[in-house]
């Protein structure tokens, strides 16, 4: 292997079981970058390349974060300091915007609503979407893929009036269910489609071996395929969660006063006769925190879970 034995050293179990694992590749990261094997030079090449790579990662992260940093800075400013074209770092910090976010409006309620709907819709999308993706990948049910994708293709406006009619007939307008069901239509196709290619890329031999050993079809799915596909599941779930978290149009139309979600509530800072830029930015920062926290936790948990899972497997 191109670079070093780093991955072998850190993850001997991968070698042993030949299971691909998430989060760390089986190949060293620089295998594509280093110029093959030239004894002696390898070590220094490696250090240099790793250094360069790290600089690049940090740079790119900063570039992507700059607008967000501006938003965060603005959330600690008065309106005068936000709309000025002078130095962005010169201002007297204020926490007033955050006091407004939590003081003037019932943000805790909106936060809970958003969490319930995003967790609920993501979870249910997984329950429906993972088996569907598996079926499409393993049993070649291509048409189902197209049907699911259609749900993602239909422009959102199409649904608003018809859903409102149906949901008010069955009396779930303004309830969590209306929101969860509508968000699922966004999350389910996404999860299914991301997972199709993951299930396809998993080696069939492992499953077959398990089946020969007496595992049922369900067993093969739950014990072999699902654990192997975890990196994809995590990514798809996080995205699906974010789609629900940010959904505006469905939430606006289908929510009631007690089920308003954060993206709707954020509009409290824009009114007919004034825009509270500071409050808006503070609300935008507040909105991101739960997602960041959740993502960090999920990633950590999964890494831990997989390390133990891989050795068992």
């Amino acid at each position: 292997m191109g670079g070093t034995g780093m991955s072998q050293a850190t993850r001997p179990e991968n070698r042993a079981t030949e299971l691909p694992t998430p989060d760390t590749t089986n190949r060293p990261a620089d295998s594509r970058l280093s110029t093959g094997r030239k004894a002696g030079a390898t070590r220094w090449d490696y250090v240099l390349l790793q250094g360069l790579r790290y600089v690049a990662i940090v740079l790119i992260t900063i570039i992507f974060l700059l607008p967000f940093l501006w938003m965060t800075l603005s959330s600690f400013k008065t309106q005068i300091d936000i709309t000025t074209s002078k130095n962005v770092f010169q201002f007297t910090p204020t926490t007033e915007n955050y006091q407004n976010v939590f003081g003037q409006y019932n943000y805790l309620l909106y936060l809970v609503n958003s969490l319930v709907v995003a967790v609920g819709s993501t979870f249910l999308s997984l329950v429906l979407g993972l088996p569907a993706a598996y079926a499409i990948a393993r049993y070649r049910v291509g048409w189902l893929g197209v049907v699911l994708l259609t749900a993602r293709i239909v422009p959102g406006i199409t649904f608003l009036i018809p859903w409102y009619i149906i949901f008010s007939r069955i009396g779930i307008i303004g309830s969590y269910w209306a929101l969860i069901l509508s968000h699922m239509l966004v999350g389910l196709p996404f999860i299914a489609w991301i997972m199709i290619s993951f299930f396809e890329s998993l080696p069939v031999d492992l499953e077959e071996a398990a089946r020969v050993d007496g595992a049922t079809a369900f067993g093969a799915f739950f014990r072999i395929s699902l654990p192997l596909a975890v990196p994809g599941i995590i990514t798809a779930s996080i995205m699906s969660f974010i789609f629900s978290w940010n959904n505006f149009m469905f939430s606006l139309v289908l929510s009631g006063d007690n089920t308003k979600t954060l993206p709707i509530a954020i509009f409290n800072f824009i009114s007919y006769s004034s825009v509270d830029w500071g409050g808006l930015m503070a609300a935008a920062v507040v909105i991101t925190l739960p997602v960041l926290l959740l993502t960090l936790m999920v990633q950590r948990y999964v890494v831990a879970g997989l390390t133990s899972g891989a050795t068992k497997g």
Binding site: M6, L65, M71
Partner: peptide, 24 residues
């Protein structure tokens, strides 16, 4: 791709642009 110092953190941070609500 591959392990590096602070990878979870970077992978989380980089999500920020899509998390901060399109309207905001």
């Amino acid at each position: 791709q591959g392990k590096f110092f602070g990878q979870n953190f970077i992978k989380t941070l980089i999500l920020l642009p899509m998390v901060a609500t399109p309207v905001a």
